[in-house]
Design a protein around this nucleic acid. Structure first.
Lengths: 343, 343
DNA sequence: TCTTTTTGGTAAAACGTTTTATCAAAAAGA
DNA sequence: TCTTTTTGATAAAACGTTTTACCAAAAAGA
């Protein structure tokens, strides 16, 4: 039963060498003879030596840890990202510290401050309004930052996210092509560029296809509502707009509550109401008759983000402040947007 | 634009005091006069001083980081836990480093070895066979460990998880009470105590209620299969057992694939086949006619685990090696287990 | 042979803290 | 007044590394 951590100093003593020699051997630097090298390696191995990351971190300024600040680590979208990011980072010997911001500015600030205590070598952050200064500060302190799932309008901070505008545009156009003419929008009443972009895609798709935008068909669901409240709100919205023949939900969460609402109203999809939702999800593939969705390229987003970050961390001197990746989404067509039956 | 990290030494210089004094003030130790205290605090505040965690960690041996080793951070169950654990830990100033083990022994070992480099103050781990030694090693090295969602048979390592046995027992008994007599089981072919316990609950419920266990009605789905393969396998199982009138899926994942299978086979729930699944999930509440599930007390599990861990970390000398929490689950009854129609 | 280069190795400083031991000056006791 | 105690502050060591600068001995050049 190996006990108590062994240090480089102990190994030096055990092998009648110096601390420097041991360090050199363990890091493959310096010039040390075969025999000594072998002996040191053996002793280190036998005693299960592991470097003290704190000491290494203090000395080198490198923690080999990446900070991941997402809206909610428990959600399906961010969870998936977290998985990919972890795998990719692990390959380069990096670990991940996560923090959820809960879309709360103060919490976001706190979290970033905490992580900036030399604890992490770089950041992947889902941005939110009000965090601009904090993020710029990180960058000023030489810490690479990549934003995911959002960006700051007008600021040159590298980011990677799905092409929200085109995704929404295409989804709505898909509805139009299937014969729907009174297309509603359900979005969240929260100030996020992602949602703005989606809304703009919706509006532009209508306009380009000669349909009039109708304020009444746009519903912004208040943000701080519990599930049943929100479901009721959506129910009301749908019930009050009988002429509406299709609806586009701008998030996963809203889509699911939307299905619940539609079910409770006793409406049939797509005959009474066609449905498209952002973010694919098990529910949508299984729920009869199958809900058409915009599948986010989670893997690609996460992979691009972590790759960019790692290359910056390991000293790539390219200026990536202008890197702004918009990754195309995939429209998963299911029966909820079948060609409209003519009445 | 504050730039470059400021250290305790800089503050000392700026205030014509010593490093010790600054440290004392910042940590509320020692006896320092009001004026000096005020001056130091001001300077620290103005310059945005943040202690270097690496230095603190090296000196004190405390990292204020907790290691979370789960099967898959991306999954709904573990994601939810991760969220709760993070929130609770944050309250005490702890951050979380996560690693996914992917139910792969080697990866689990690697991950634990990495974290044991003085990087974390304690662990929350989902155990898997083969990791016994590694976990015991951690404990021998004075690092508190709490297991979640599983445990090691015969070892006194504190753990907290749902009461798998009773949960399964109750679910199956619920089916029996609703009139079902040929109850099948779909589980995963992987060596996890959780699944063993669930299976045992199933078997005992049958026996106690005078039903005969039938090997043919038990299906162990091979572990490394992709989704469509697994769905097909389940389809076959169901198709080959026409007499089966109900089926119990021991995991979320299997349940969802099960629904897919049943859908593809064109069977009606519950008339052709009643369904219960472990792990509640949006899909199950939404999918018509509503699937009865065993809802894991995710919050309670995570909360108990992190609370136990934190109390150990902060020096609680109680021996908790015998703490073995089984938290009751809740059976969410939906229409998939409605009273059986008599033919 | 004497000088130069190469080889193999090490001492010591530094990273930014915390903490122990110490100390001078001021206050209190006598 | 002289001694003791309290107060306020600090120097220095330690945590475990990495890395620079240096050195002695051996090898190579001449």
């Amino acid at each position: 039963m190996m006990n108590k951590k062994i240090s480089i100093k102990d190994i030096a003593k055990l092998t009648n060498t110096s601390i420097t020699t041991v360090s050199f051997v363990l890091n493959g630097k310096g010039r040390i003879s075969k025999e000594i090298t072998k002996k040191i390696l053996e002793v280190a191995e036998k005693n299960g030596y592991e470097p003290n990351r704190m000491a290494v971190g203090l000395r080198t300024g490198v923690s080999k840890v990446i900070g991941l600040v997402v809206e909610n680590i428990g959600g399906p979208f961010f969870g998936e990202m977290a998985k990919v990011i972890e795998e990719e980072a692990d390959r380069e010997g990096y670990r991940i510290i996560y923090c959820s911001s809960d879309n709360n500015i103060q919490k976001g600030k706190d979290v970033i401050r905490m992580l900036s205590q030399q604890l992490v070598d770089g950041y992947i952050v889902t941005p939110m309004k009000g965090l601009e200064k904090d993020i710029q500060n990180l960058i000023a302190n030489e810490k690479p930052v990549i934003l995911i799932d959002g960006y700051f309008k007008g600021l040159d901070i590298p980011h990677v996210l799905v092409d929200n505008y085109s995704s929404a545009y295409n989804a709505v156009e898909h509805l139009i092509n299937a014969g729907y003419k009174k297309i509603g929008l359900v979005t969240a009443d929260i100030d996020l560029v992602q949602l703005d972009d989606r809304m703009q895609g919706y509006k532009d798709a209508l306009k380009t296809n000669g349909l009039k935008e109708n304020k009444k068909l746009i519903f912004k669901s208040p943000f701080h509502m519990d599930k049943s409240e929100a479901t009721n709100a959506i129910k009301n919205f749908i019930a009050q707009n009988k002429q509406m023949d299709a609806v586009f939900f701008t998030t996963n969460y809203l889509g699911i509550m939307g299905l619940q609402s539609i079910k409770e109203l006793g409406l049939t999809i797509p005959d009474d109401l066609a449905v498209v939702s952002f973010d694919d999800n098990e529910v949508f593939s299984l729920y009869p008759p199958g809900i058409t969705t915009i599948r986010q390229p989670t893997y690609e987003i996460a992979k691009s983000a972590i790759d960019l970050l790692l290359s910056q961390i390991s000293g790539d001197k390219h200026d990536i402040s202008k890197v702004k990746l918009r990754i195309p989404s995939k429209l998963i067509e299911r029966s909820s947007t079948a060609i409209k039956k003519q009445v």
